[in-house]
Design a protein around this nucleic acid. Structure first.
Length: 635
RNA sequence: GCCCAUGUAGCUCAGUCGGCAGAGCACAUCCUUGGUAAGGAUGAGGUCACCGGUUCGAUUCCGGUCAUGGGCUCCA
């Protein structure tokens, strides 16, 4: 039952019940018979003692079916309007649905509108979706005759002897189903974009044209989703980055290479200062290493073999080949190896804000989120096997502390286990994976296991943070490595006087400063908390008469290490306030006749609220406290 | 890399069916000295992404290059 209860009933009773829900919002879109999804119309052949679940609109599966049916209607409309188009696939996705078409010319935005219109007509007809079972061979003949090559190809790979087709209003498509009972059940949908997509996602295959759309049960839900898309657009870090003069990219410099402008750079510096100071507190040693190294180093580390497609071509220096570094690990290992280590020295924790260069294909570059040169907040921990769990526990605490400071307190955590191709002993893998699991469980952190998704050199934990719009971003990663210590013959002297191999843990908390900054911009919509704001206080005068007083106040703020600016422009207060508000400056100190006479200041907060009057010392104290506490919200 | 779209002033965008290029904001100068989100006037600012072709003439048409954007696992 939709309310989660169970009832025992005859088929006829069930049908009557479903009938009674018709036309209500809760009317089921499908049923699950003994675990298998089917349409409502398939109740006839339900055997005795079957368990039938009603798939209701509110459920994840319900929505999937709903959207999948909408994608069929899309295909129908396209086929009506462009009969030469060949159909590929059209599934539901997290956010909506798409359908891939093989069409001679491109679809235009105007086509989308026309297709939408045609879809609405098809929905209005309210034709039933009819399921037809067919032997596979028959289906192949049918689609071959219709010239639907992609469907034929799909069919040829389906192992089942019987396949199902769905027909509505004369349009037949190969489909596993289930579907809505009638097209008229689709109440709200919108086609969103046109994009290229390879047949089966493989770039060796033909490029098809994909139409993306989304569908919801009500117009209100659709509206809310479109508003969400608007909000995402408003927060776009590329747009805000330009408006707030945080960073830029330049044709002259090259794609994927970031220029940090003063406003972005001061934020980055603030983040780095915080990062360094916390790492020192947590017993990490801070390192600096070069941006290039001999190609031989990368051959030794294995990067040249396994990672070459992401590395730049070597450059020659004094007839020796050098490489821009794609990773920091080999450097940290060299530092570890520069002096003999005893078991008493472990764990050794090396951290570096290391700038690396990786080749990314031109089509995947994206603002700050996908770049070719970036700075990792990298660290490598060398420890004994018996120390892994404690180290992981430390890292988890540390990670969550850092992420929380930036206002991220909701996470999706994944534990990736041994892939098919791996290095290291089975025993090591099991022990390390066990340690990761133990640590997560001790911390009470819920996680999902990604079987076989570990890197070849060891298991890992990935943490995805959720931003205010509930979007997930992968930043933190903790990876155990059995490979590099082996390749570099890294050792420590044990209590037994013998040499032992340390375990290496790679870990990044923010991942890359560039990417993390991009996420922060979107998370805060450019309204940075005080401790991060490029300009924390703007001092502005009501008229020229108060310039001297304003300069005094400004100096006092600067002296107190507050990032202040002064606005003596020949403009009215209203104008100056508007300027500062658009720059999202947290505090405005407004000085006029009254303030100058009393030796006080009036303060306007970013949200429009006025506080004060304060003496300058009182105000400095307020700012100091808010900065020190790293308050993330204005309220 | 591939498909499609886009590239005009610092920013957001008009525009020219081939004939010397426009607005708003921002910027500069002047007037105004004004109490909580835009006071007024004047002015400066463009190789219309780049290279080539067609043409008497190209920002506009054609070809190429570069950059940016939406996509390219979600298997009927």
């Amino acid at each position: 039952m939709p309310d989660g209860t169970e009832k025992e009933t005859e088929i006829s009773g069930l049908k009557k019940y479903i009938e009674s829900l018709k036309s209500s919002n809760g009317s089921p879109v499908a049923v699950r018979v003994n675990g298998e999804l089917r349409e409502l119309s398939s109740l006839e052949d339900v055997g005795p003692q079957s368990v039938v679940e009603l798939v209701i609109p509110g459920s994840k599966e319900g929505l999937e079916i709903y959207r999948h049916s909408t994608s069929h209607i899309l295909a129908h409309a396209v086929k009506d309007m462009f009969p030469d188009v060949k159909l590929a696939i059209g599934p539901a996705t997290e956010e909506g649905f798409y359908y891939d078409f093989d069409k001679a010319g491109p679809f235009t935005p105007e086509d989308l509108e026309k297709i939408e219109k045609r879809m609405k007509e098809l929905i209005k007809k309210n034709s039933p979706f009819i399921r037809k079972a067919l032997p596979r061979g028959g289906a192949i003949d049918l689609f071959r005759k219709a010239g639907e090559d992609y469907k034929v190809q799909l069919l040829e790979e389906i192992p089942d002897e019987t396949v199902s087709l769905y027909e509505e209003d004369g349009f037949v498509d190969l489909c596993r189903g289930p579907h809505l009972s009638k097209t008229g059940r689709v109440k709200a949908f919108k086609l969103l974009s046109i994009a290229g997509a390879y047949w089966r996602g493989d770039e060796k295959n033909k490029m098809l044209q994909r139409i993306y759309g989304t569908a919801f049960y009500t117009r209100e839900e659709l509206r809310a989703y479109l508003d969400f898309l608007e909000e995402v657009k408003k927060r776009d870090h590329r747009k805000l980055g330009r408006e707030l003069e945080l960073f830029s990219l330049s044709d002259e410099i090259g794609p994927g290479l970031i220029l940090w402008h003063p406003n972005g750079a001061i934020i980055r510096k603030t983040i780095e200062d915080f990062w360094r100071s916390e790492h020192l507190k947590a017993d990490y040693k801070i390192l600096f290493t070069p941006h290039i190294a001999k190609l031989k180093l990368w051959q030794k580390s294995g990067h040249w073999d396994f990672y070459r497609e992401n590395m730049y071509s070597p450059m020659e220096i004094d007839e020796v080949a050098y490489e821009a570094k794609p990773m920091n690990c080999p450097f940290h290992i060299e530092i570890y190896k520069s002096a003999l280590k005893s078991y008493r020295d472990l764990p050794v924790r090396y951290a570096e804000l290391g700038t690396v260069y990786r080749y990314e294909r031109s089509g995947v570059l994206h603002g700050l989120l996908r770049v070719r040169g970036f700075t990792q907040d990298d660290a490598h921990i060398f420890c004994r096997e018996d120390q892994i769990e404690d180290e992981i526990l430390n890292i988890l605490d540390f990670t969550i502390f850092i992420l929380k400071t930036f206002g991220f307190d909701s996470y999706d955590i994944y534990l990736s286990t041994r892939p098919e191709k791996y290095v290291g002993s089975l025993e090591n893998w099991e022990r390390a994976t066990g340690a990761l699991k133990q640590a997560l469980e001790k911390k009470g952190l819920p996680y999902t296991i990604d079987p076989g998704e570990g890197v070849f050199y060891g298991p890992k934990i990935d943490i995805k943070i959720k931003d205010v719009l509930n979007r997930a971003w992968q930043c933190s990663t903790i990876q155990v490595d059995f490979n590099l210590p082996e390749r570099f013959d890294t050792v420590y002297r044990g209590s037994d006087g013998k040499e032992h191999r340390p375990i290496m843990i790679h870990r990044a908390l923010m991942g890359s400063l560039e990417r993390f900054f991009g996420i922060l911009i979107e998370h805060y919509a450019g309204i940075f908390p005080l401790w991060l704001s490029p300009v924390q206080v703007s001092v502005l005068t009501i008229s020229e008469k108060h310039e001297e007083y304003a300069k005094e106040i400004y100096k006092a703020l600067k002296k107190a290490d507050i990032r202040a600016e002064i606005n003596l422009e020949n403009e009215k207060v209203g104008y100056k306030i508007r300027e500062a508000t658009m720059k999202k400056i947290p505090y405005l100190v407004i000085l006029g006749e009254k303030e100058a006479a009393e030796g006080k200041i009036t303060v306007r907060k970013r949200n429009g609220e006025n506080i004060g009057p304060f003496t300058i010392d009182e105000f400095i104290e307020i700012i100091r406290e808010e900065v020190q506490k790293k308050v993330t919200s204005d309220k």
